[in-house]
Design a protein around this nucleic acid. Structure first.
Lengths: 290, 290
DNA sequence: AACTTTAGCAGTACACTGTACGACGTGGCA
DNA sequence: TGCCACGTCGTACAGTGTACTGCTAAAGTT
């Protein structure tokens, strides 16, 4: 699944965790003093600080050497992915995941603080599928390279469309990092300021996610063309749709509808528009050199 | 909220509904015969057909004139939006919405078949905020016009970020239609095939949604820069991040981190990258004329 | 080899969700 | 005036995330 998540050496993890813990503790003490002096309102700030610890703790938590755990966090993420793929995202409940692993429900909570944290792990595992494996080499040409990554992202999202339901993932996991790193690598052959490269990387990622979101929502069920045509006619009869009404008067509803239908489902759209986006960047960057 | 939703004349609605119902019924009868002859498996197909009726029924359902309902579907959508804005999307439960309207929970189910249908209404109401009001005129220049619409979409998504949690909206509501119509209007001054205009419209929409999704996720909480820097250092120490490691060796972690940080939060990014996308289209369309 | 400790595991319970079912009462038409 | 359809809503049920609380078995200590 995620190539190196568990390979992160425990020593480094522990070091990091200790360091962070110490730092947070210091701040907590500071805050605690103020709170003792002043009062209630600061409690929230204290919580926020604690949350910061959680953020890094999600990735840095170390398996204190003792009784051997039955599972790894990756196992759990993998189980969740398996369930989501085969039974839909709604089926991913703590109970269901636990059952998949032949464990008690509450056992999961020894590996994961909340369901959200589990989903964060799932998201990083997902990004593990996006990352170009080390057996494959990134193309030299930046357009080819970034297109390859974009296509991999799209394909992974098509395999696991429910990923788009995990909306909250501000966490930077190891695979997110690796993905970002590969994007930067991709642009090695592009002469541009780092700022502009960031623009490019983020715009491409955003386009891909938007595309897949749209695709997922519109390919859901094959709505019957007849009903739809009738329905749209009815809507248009209300007036107030000048452009579409004009167009239908011109080419006819059927033709227009089938054009749109074919277009949404067409296969070339992704690459075509991605190429246009990249061309736009190229032109813009040529105009403002390094 | 949605400028014309409720203005749709009941007569037309009823007509449409009757027509569709008759058509579906005919098909249902056909299917029923086959099922009588053959057997079970077709039941699913029957259900699917029934669903098609639901799809258009969501918008076409007519208020059979009788006792006056206390609410309109728009009222309910508005209540849901109010709650989501002030208490977060998770707070939008049927019970909470009903309470907001001083009604019993189950009362809602006389206006709406399921919670999903309610969310479909909410989404269309949202699109009502995106639609350019008739008091405002669309710019003549297609780039200005489509940019205006894109910016309105982004602003609406910033006002209601939780909209991105409503992932399933294959339904074409009145305001979705109006939005699409305005997009087509926007491109009046662009000489291109309809196919290409569709490419442009969809790509822009997808970019905007991707942008807002990304923005929402990354602006969530102000992660403490110190911890983050430490954490990233730890990750990078694991090796395997060639591009980033090299960059840090070059400019230093702090500098890089602050660049990225500033960049993600920078205000110009949206317009800058949108302009690049549009430029890419313009160049591509100039090359392949009408 | 016996003992202590404690981390991994899990059962129960609680507050919450969406919604199926059925009862109630009232407004509008005959 | 009577009727009854339709808007309203209370109850109930299966499901959710997770806090709390024990139990068990394995690792470490003597």
């Amino acid at each position: 699944m995620s190539p190196k998540t568990s390979a992160t050496s425990d020593a480094v993890k522990q070091l990091m965790l200790d360091k962070a813990t110490a730092k947070i503790n210091a701040k907590l003490d500071q805050q605690a003093q103020k709170i003792a002096a002043k009062s209630v309102k600061h409690a929230e700030a204290l919580d926020r600080l604690a949350e910061h610890l959680e953020t890094i703790d999600t990735w840095m938590r170390v398996d204190r050497a003792s009784r051997k755990p039955r599972f790894s966090r990756d196992d759990i993420a993998a189980a969740a992915i398996r369930i989501a793929d085969s039974e839909g995202f709604a089926a991913v409940s703590m109970r269901r995941v636990a059952a998949e692993l032949d464990a008690g429900t509450m056992t999961l909570y020894h590996y994961v603080r909340t369901k959200d944290e589990l989903l964060t792990l799932v998201f990083d595992a997902f990004l593990g599928e996006v990352v170009v494996p080390s057996t494959e080499r990134l193309p030299r040409d930046w357009r080819a390279a970034i297109s390859l990554i974009a296509r991999r992202t799209r394909d992974a999202l098509r395999r696991h469309p429910w990923i788009l339901d995990i909306a909250d993932d501000p966490n930077i996991g190891p695979n997110a990092m690796r993905h970002f790193d590969q994007c930067v690598q991709s642009l090695a052959s592009l002469e541009a300021r780092f700022d502009d490269k960031l623009d490019l990387i983020m715009a491409v990622d955003e386009y891909v996610f938007g595309f897949c979101l749209h695709e997922r929502n519109n390919l859901k069920d094959e709505v019957d063309t007849d009903e739809m045509a009738d329905y749209i006619t009815a809507l248009l009869d209300e007036g107030d749709y000048p452009a579409l009404s004009a167009m239908i008067a011109d080419v006819g509803l059927e033709k227009m509808w089938s054009m749109i239908h074919a277009h949404v489902r067409g296969t070339g759209r992704f690459d075509r528009n991605l190429a246009r986006l990249l061309a736009g960047f190229e032109a813009s960057l040529r105009r403002s050199p390094v």
